[in-house]
Nucleic acid binder design. Structure first.
Lengths: 127, 127
DNA sequence: CTAATAACAGTAACAATTACTATTTTTGTT
DNA sequence: AACAAAAATAGTAATTGTTACTGTTATTAG
């Protein structure tokens, strides 16, 4: 019994944008992209919808270099961030799922999300 | 050949404070604590030293609820944050070390740090 | 068609962090 | 002990990412 949600073109555009790109955009980057189609969309609208999508599990959120980034790919994976070029790479591995189960047991509580960020130098910057 | 560092009482106080508390303070919380001893310390000084300590590996940094938090305990462990009460718990486990090695191989690069944050409800808030 | 209200745009406010500049401390050298 | 060079600082201003607010618009049920 999800809360009743009204349709909105802005939210549709945000979801569509997030699911049709392979990078890890910030709220502002999504805002910039969507303004091409809806020049009057408000940045607050982008923030609000992204927050809601994350709470519903339709998007992943993580904080990187002082700003929130979003990921429309909700398959279990984690992120590698290059300290040199700033690029964010996806690493697909079941480890996040195992951590969730293990942590729930360790703290005797409930786990809602696992955010794993590995930092270092990517292949091309390490040379 | 580490870069030459000059002594400073402020830095010593920051290190001492960080290593003699068991919570996960923000820069401002460390600032508040140290002002009791050095009422004229600058917030910028706290930020700069914490950044340097993190780069040297003397402290761990992670971002939680929109602000940076620091941890003087550099033993391998990760954090569980309660969505209800906001408490940050330490979870000691070798998983972060394994992730570092695995990721370095997966991305064919170098790993400098692993930041793992699990969110959910802690034991007392889950009741 | 209409009323109720969710969602919005636009702007202002906010909080965390960084940048800047003149002054103070530290350290090596005489 | 005195001095010079430069690292570190204090205090403040500026910047940035995010949230809050208010009047307007769009969606939905009846």
């Amino acid at each position: 019994m999800a809360a009743p949600r009204r349709f909105s073109r802005q939210r549709e555009a945000i979801i569509h944008n997030l699911q049709n790109r392979c990078d890890h955009p910030s709220a502002d980057e999504i805002y910039t992209a969507i303004r091409q189609q809806y020049p009057h969309i408000s940045l607050g609208t982008v923030y609000r919808n992204l927050r809601e999508l994350e709470q519903e599990g339709q998007a992943l959120k993580f904080t990187c270099d002082g700003k929130e980034r979003f990921d429309g790919n909700t398959q279990p994976h984690y992120h590698f961030v290059c300290d040199i070029c700033g690029e964010v790479y996806d690493v697909f591995d079941a480890v996040t799922g195992r951590i969730a189960a293990q942590t729930a047991q360790a703290v005797q509580g409930e786990v809602h999300s696992v955010q794993l960020i590995v930092r270092g130098r990517c292949k091309s910057c390490a040379k």
